[in-house]
Design a protein around this nucleic acid. Structure first.
Lengths: 130, 130
DNA sequence: GGTGACTAGATGGAGGTTGCAGCTATTTCG
DNA sequence: CGAAATAGCTGCAACCTCCATCTAGTCACC
């Protein structure tokens, strides 16, 4: 199913809201736990998503040169970002419901062989009635 | 959010199972009603999805030259296709649950301003102390 | 018998996304 | 020193998406 790049964004927003602020490398770890799909998340996708979120004004970043190790680019949500997260929640809620309906629909059908229609035989009463 | 090309496939499979068999132009109409997202579905995506499903052995097609109007390429599910649909149901069920969890998670957080962490202020005790 | 509307399938190509592989740099540990 | 871990970032081929457009058959109408 691939990486479903689009769902990296909302999860990152949620994590940032929960944690207050964070940086790419750390988020990469947390992402596994919160991912909407079981697909592994690409590092590249994560970094690119963060940059894009910043370009769109949903997060801001600044360098943290303090602790040991290389510098970190620390991100935090803006107000626009919080709102964006809410919007994601609304959208995902709808999709979630639609998917649940879909699953129920599939399950409600006779399993196994295709009951209603024999193969592509169908062409029994074609409408050349005109 | 775009067309979410990936979700055209399961919906087409479901429709074919329900109807026994059908063709592109007709499916295009039904798709609106069953779509998982509110995005309109591209004709191009539909036709290409059908071809791809056939290439993967999930459906078979034959020409219907009978009725009025141009010939139709009529598709129907194979047994592999039925199984593929089941698999889709399993996957989508998981994603649906994960999304619902996500939404609940978002909603459970304090709305409005970011409580836990003030802006990007964080850097309160910067280490120019060195 | 010409014209437009409708049905039906399909493709072309610009532009965007993704996944992989790799790069740099800093610090810590043995 | 050299290796490993941390941290961020980029290049690029392959792939996907979206829009526009094309072909062609039939029908209704004048």
């Amino acid at each position: 199913m691939g990486n479903l790049y689009r769902f990296v964004e909302p999860v990152v927003l949620l994590l940032l809201k929960k944690k207050g602020c964070s940086y790419g490398y750390e988020l990469a770890g947390d992402l596994e736990a919160h991912a909407l799909t079981d697909a592994a998340i690409e590092r590249a996708a994560l970094y690119r998503t963060l940059r894009q979120l910043e370009a769109n004004g949903n997060v801001v970043s600044e360098w943290d040169v303090q602790g040991g190790g290389p510098a970190r680019r620390v991100y935090s949500l803006t107000r626009a970002g919080e709102q964006h997260l809410e919007e994601w929640a609304t959208v995902l809620e709808q999709i979630s419901r639609a998917m649940a309906r879909f699953v129920k629909d599939v399950r409600s059908l006779p399993a196994g062989k295709n009951s209603g229609a024999r193969k592509a035989a169908a062409r029994e009463a074609p409408r050349q009635s005109s």
